[in-house]
């Protein structure tokens, strides 16, 4: 089964899904899936582990929500604004963070996201502890798309998700993506071949931040609010977990991981702190035993199986 067939299968499921499951739940899952894919672009293909991606996701949500609610922008423009704001934040934090490698990179991105958290806690336009509430679902494309209807909005969200997913797929398979992988595998060698490794890493960081911002904007439109939760270190950890569960460096892994984690949270929401405990247990279990994630393990088995059957 090729990647393409898996993709068509998942697309068919996504098209039928809102007739079977609750659309708002599916839209949340798609927002997080895009977020996790954006994160995976950085860790899986550039080898950079950001532990502060919530800053892009959360800040974009605030910017998008504010643009719709206070400035009266149409949602499609506000989402673009949110994504670009996240990209701009990515330029600044990325340029500083790539000055260190490995574990320090993770700590630096984490620290910056904590700084953005405190900024959002105190800034006048975020509503502090209450968050930004009551973002209206204004019609998109000049009234062509009545997105106050959940079913209509679902297909809009799916289209935007597919756009983001397609963009990531193109980036990974472009010459740019190949150079990124070369840098991930052996930075010195890539540099000696004449590639400016820092510039490649920075561009990857900005692309990932922008797409994470698109996911955050999308979530603000779907949920009609933006909150501090989306800027916390816990949220940064959650997106790491989604990518880990699904499989870092696989195309579909983050999507699968996001759906699993969001479903789990949906069922366990009533149990409060146990959600965190279970997430912690999953972290420990994956690091100790299943470092390839679900999709990574399945892909390995499949490869071994088809190699065996060819013999």
């Amino acid at each position: 089964m090729s990647t393409r067939n898996v993709g068509f299968l998942l697309l068919a499921v996504a098209l039928v899904a809102p007739w079977v499951a609750y659309p708002v739940f599916l839209m949340t899952a798609l927002c997080f899936a895009l977020f996790a894919c954006a994160f995976n672009l950085l860790i899986g293909y550039a080898g950079l582990m950001s532990f502060g991606h919530a800053m892009f996701f959360g800040l974009a949500g605030y910017v998008c929500g504010h643009a719709i609610k206070v400035w009266g922008w149409p949602p499609e423009l506000a989402m673009l604004g949110g994504a670009l704001a996240a990209g701009a934040l990515g330029v600044v934090t990325g340029a500083l963070a790539i000055r260190r490698q490995g574990i320090y990179f993770a700590m630096i991105t984490l620290a910056f996201s904590q700084m953005v958290y405190f900024f959002c806690l105190q800034a006048p336009f975020t509503g502090g502890e209450d968050g930004l509430q009551g973002i209206p679902r204004s019609p998109m494309l000049g009234g062509l798309l009545p997105v106050h209807n959940d079913m209509v909005l679902y297909y809009v969200v799916l289209a935007i998700f597919l756009f983001g997913f397609g963009a990531i797929y193109r980036i990974i398979h472009s010459p740019f993506g190949q150079v990124l992988k070369a840098i991930r595998e052996n930075e010195q060698r890539a540099v000696s071949l004449g590639y400016n490794a820092d510039r490649y890493k920075l561009v990857a960081f900005i692309l990932s931040a922008t797409l994470a911002g698109l996911a955050g904007s999308l979530k603000a439109v779907v949920m009609q609010f933006a909150t501090l939760t989306d800027v916390t270190a816990a949220m940064s950890g959650e997106v790491v977990l989604m990518a880990l569960v699904g499989g870092i460096g696989t195309i579909f892994g983050p999507v699968v991981g996001a759906v699993i984690i969001i479903t789990m949270q949906n069922y366990l929401a009533a149990t409060g702190e146990w959600v965190l405990v279970i997430q912690g247990v999953i972290f420990v279990a994956i690091v100790l035993a299943f470092r390839k994630g679900i999709v990574g393990e399945i892909a390995d088995r499949w490869r071994a199986y088809s190699a065996g059957s060819r013999k």
């Binding site: 993770a106 950890g237 880990l244 702190e273 965190l276 405990v277 912690g280 994956i286 690091v287 100790l288």
Partner: peptide, 28 residues
């Protein structure tokens, strides 16, 4: 002890998970 041979990031992730567990249990 089981993860020293791996990339440093795995230690970070493992101890992050442990922190979630410990803090969750104390909150509960």
């Amino acid at each position: 002890r089981r993860i020293y041979h791996l990339d440093h990031l795995y230690g970070f992730l493992l101890t992050f998970g442990l922190a979630l567990i410990i803090e969750g249990v104390f909150r509960w």
